[in-house]
C-alpha cells in the first residue's frame, strides 16, 4: 500500500505486465511464481550490480521477486536481535530494490514482546531495527534511505500474553514511505 506499483513496473522493465497486478495480496499468483527457492535464488545472484533486475529473468522469477518484496516483517527469537537466516533472500530483495531506486525511503520499526521493562524493550526493538538496517546497507541501500524507530512493546501486532503472541510481536516491520 505504501510502495507504488508504478515504481515496481520500472525496475521490472520488460516484465512490467507481471509486476502490474503486483501489490495486491493475490497469493496464488505469487505462489506459482515463487515456487521453490530457485527463482528467488536466481534473482539473488543477479542483484549484485543492482541494475537491470528482472530484465533477464523469467516471468516466474519476477513473481518471486515480487513475493519477496511483499514480505515486510522480520521475526526474532526471544531476547535476540540477530536476523534469522530465513530472511536473507527477502532482505536481499529489499536491499536491491532500494539500491535501484535511490529515491525510495523506508522506515524500520523495531518491536519487542511485552515481557520486561518498557524502556529496556525500546532498546531491544532498536537493536533489531539496526540489525535489519545493517543488512539492507550491505545489500546496497544507502543510509539516507533508511530511518529507524523502536516502539518496544508499545504497539503489539498480536494481543495476548502467550508464546504465540510474543513470537508475533518480536519483529521489525519494513514500512515504505511515500
Amino acid at each position: 500500500m505504501v510502495r507504488s506499483s508504478v515504481m515496481l513496473t520500472c525496475i521490472l522493465g520488460a516484465l512490467a505486465l507481471a509486476g502490474c497486478g503486483g501489490r495486491s495480496n493475490t497469493l496464488p499468483d505469487y505462489e506459482s511464481g515463487a515456487e521453490g527457492g530457485g527463482a528467488a535464488e536466481g534473482a539473488d545472484t543477479r542483484g549484485a550490480d543492482g541494475r537491470g533486475i528482472g530484465v533477464f529473468e523469467e516471468e516466474g522469477a519476477a513473481g518471486g521477486q515480487q513475493a519477496l518484496l511483499d514480505q515486510l516483517i522480520v521475526y526474532f527469537e526471544y531476547d535476540q536481535s540477530e536476523v534469522p537466516a530465513q530472511y536473507n533472500e527477502m532482505l536481499a530483495a529489499h536491499g536491491r530494490y532500494l539500491s535501484s531506486n535511490p529515491e525510495a525511503r523506508i522506515r524500520l520499526e523495531g518491536h519487542a514482546d511485552e515481557r520486561g521493562s518498557r524502556e529496556y524493550n525500546i532498546g531491544l526493538g532498536e537493536r533489531r531495527s539496526q540489525a535489519v538496517r545493517r543488512i539492507l546497507m550491505l545489500q546496497g541501500a544507502s543510509a539516507e534511505q533508511l530511518s529507524t524507530v523502536s516502539y518496544g512493546e508499545e504497539r503489539p501486532a498480536a494481543l495476548g500474553s502467550d508464546e504465540e503472541a510474543y513470537s508475533l510481536n518480536r519483529r521489525v516491520e519494513i514500512v515504505y514511505r511515500q
Binding site: 532498546g123 537493536r127 531495527s129 539496526q130 538496517r133 529507524t148
Partner: peptide
C-alpha cells in the same frame, strides 16, 4: 534521558 547514536542507547 536515553538517546541513541547509530542505534546504540
Amino acid at each position: 534521558l536515553t538517546l541513541s547514536r547509530d542505534g546504540n542507547l
